[in-house]
């Protein structure tokens, strides 16, 4: 910190004539270089390697096999039904969780925006799941709540005279979706609630005096006000949900069959379980392309509002 400040502050002093120049008068390179350099390496080296391996024949178990593969890795990948299925699983997870969390999150944000007793405490309870590490949330749901023999849901089912449901066996994808919604609803809620808080209270008051109902206010005033926050939430959730891993790893390990194998888990299986570097890299290239499409929108949306 001290070197950082002295370098920039030494700048104007050394060149008093340029004191007023914005930015131009000061050499900020030494301050920026470490961050920029490291991020550049972090981005380019693995990316280049993934691209390289995607066109190679490379299996960690059999070092004798090597050489260029051309587009064969991609060919096998696209002929493999597992890829299409994993893409489908990824899309279902991403779209489903985003839709549920945004709809519930915006309604809850409007509800919490009303003053009520103990609002602060209720909000803290509400957002808590977001801070729970993914492996813990997955295991709590899997073992303590949804376990077909000793879980809480099964206990309730038996008390009511029903047959307990084997959640991860019968509805694997929905069960994982439920866990993900529990983790991400607090996030959507927190962002949308913060956006609502920045709203002009008088506008709401005026609407109320004009006889608008809570529903009218929500649809015509609050929802448009949250539009930007909603779009940012969607895109950030998309980035994180495309790479859901730990929840699948500890609950279903991608199964039964391929039922819960998303693209991330497929690559993990190919790379670290089957040691097929070439095939995993080809799938990695597809994941990167997908994420880039999303991130282009996010970057533009954030950049539009950026004040420097």
């Amino acid at each position: 910190m001290s070197t950082a400040a002295s370098a920039t502050m030494g700048g104007p002093r050394a060149k008093p004539g340029k004191k007023k120049a914005i930015g131009g008068g000061v050499n900020t390179m030494p301050l920026l270089a470490p961050a920029v350099g490291l991020l550049l390496i972090w981005m380019i080296v693995p990316l280049a390697m993934t691209l390289f391996f995607a066109f190679r024949r490379y299996n960690l178990l059999n070092p004798m096999i090597h050489g260029w593969a051309g587009f064969n890795n991609f060919k096998y990948l696209f002929e493999d039904p597992a890829l299409l299925h994993s893409l489908l699983v990824s899309v279902i997870l991403v779209v489903g969780v985003i839709a549920i969390t945004i709809i519930l999150g915006s309604i809850l944000a409007a509800i919490f925006n009303q003053p009520f007793p103990g609002q602060g405490v209720a909000r803290v309870l509400m957002i808590s799941p977001f801070f729970v590490m993914p492996t813990v949330s997955a295991l709590v749901w899997k073992n303590l709540l949804m376990h077909p023999v000793s879980g809480l849901f099964a206990a309730f089912a038996r008390m009511l005279g029903f047959q307990p449901i084997d959640w991860f066996g019968s509805f694997p994808l929905s069960s994982i979706m439920l866990i993900l919604c529990w983790e991400w609803l607090p996030y959507a809620f927190l962002i949308l609630f913060t956006a609502l808080q920045s709203m002009d209270e008088e506008q709401l008051e005026a609407a109320r005096l004009d006889g608008a109902t809570a529903y009218n206010i929500f649809v015509s005033i609050q929802l448009p006000h949250m539009a930007r926050a909603i779009s940012v939430t969607i895109m950030i959730e998309m980035i994180f949900l495309l790479s859901v891993f730990a929840e699948i790893y500890v609950t279903t390990a991608g199964g039964p069959g391929f039922a819960t194998t998303n693209l991330t888990f497929l690559i993990y299986q190919r790379a670290l379980l089957a040691f097929n570097v070439g095939g995993a890299s080809a799938a990695g290239v597809i994941a990167i392309i997908l994420a880039n499409i999303v991130s282009a929108f996010l970057t533009r949306s954030v950049g539009k509002r950026l004040e420097i």
Partner: peptide, 17 residues
């Protein structure tokens, strides 16, 4: 914005390297 875009790189895409 470039720094933001590096965060968008999916971890799994670079798992192998």
């Amino acid at each position: 914005l470039w720094m933001l875009s590096t965060k968008m790189l999916p971890a799994v895409g670079v798992l192998v390297p």
